[in-house]
């Protein structure tokens, strides 16, 4: 998921930076005072989730939790993930510095999309299913966005898309199940978190 420096073409990089900037500004505008501690905790959670890493096929995958963050925070996903991605790039060398914009867009935009789609349904479907759909849907969308950025930079789309899709399918199922459990847990322990999220739509 973390694309390295020197892979993408300049137009893709610039577009990524511009869109991430726009998303981050929008997110910061929606960041109410009472949401700040919660956003900080989820940002830390995302930061650590990328370290839980599973060998899978020729590549290796790690949890992202972007579906969960999109469901709970909406547009706040942009600033929350940007902070964590900057630190990951600086401390661990996950992905490059110039591609931060594209990497953040690839992870945060699916989060926002999944959140916008699923949040209205949260009272109509069981919490487990809600978490599963958010988790797996966001990972698949991120996979598509990663292949799209590689394709726009000149790699053969069908090949990368194939690899990314099949590589991400097991991850998306796993992430769906784990996100499902987390949503169930949140629903039991602090149901007001799920109820209160509509203020950020």
């Amino acid at each position: 998921m973390h694309i390295a420096d020197g892979v993408l073409s300049t137009p893709v990089l610039v577009a990524g930076i511009a869109m991430t900037l726009a998303g981050t500004i929008l997110g910061l505008k929606k960041l109410d005072d009472d949401k700040i501690p919660f956003a900080a905790v989820l940002s830390a959670c995302f930061f650590v989730a990328s370290l839980i890493h599973l060998p899978l096929g020729p590549s290796s995958v790690h949890l992202i939790f972007n579906g969960l963050i999109g469901l709970l925070l909406g547009w706040l996903a942009f600033p929350v993930m940007l902070v964590a991605l900057i630190l990951q790039a600086m401390f661990f060398g996950f992905g490059g510095i110039v591609v931060l914009g594209v990497n953040c867009l690839n992870i945060a935009l699916p989060a926002v999309m999944v959140g916008a789609l699923l949040r209205p349904m949260r009272h109509h479907i069981p919490a487990q299913l809600l978490g599963f759909l958010a988790g797996s849907g966001a990972v698949l969308l991120t996979g598509i966005m990663v292949s799209l950025s590689l394709y726009l930079s000149g790699e053969a789309f069908s090949k990368t898309a194939n690899v990314v899709f099949w590589g991400n399918l097991p991850l998306s199922l796993l992430e769906g199940v784990i996100s499902g459990f987390i949503i169930v847990l949140i629903n039991q322990v602090k149901p007001e978190i799920l109820k209160g999220v509509h203020s950020n739509v």
């Binding site: 501690p37 900080a40 940002s43 830390a44 930061f47 902070v83 964590a84 990951q88 401390f91």
Partner: peptide, 30 residues
């Protein structure tokens, strides 16, 4: 290439600190 504990804890510290700073700025402005 390995990741060490102090990097992870430092990262979490940074995140909480940044959001704390943001929170501080907001309360001052308000």
């Amino acid at each position: 290439a390995n990741i060490r504990w102090h990097d992870i804890l430092g990262g979490i510290g940074y995140i909480l600190g940044l959001f704390g700073l943001w929170s501080l700025m907001r309360t001052r402005r308000g």
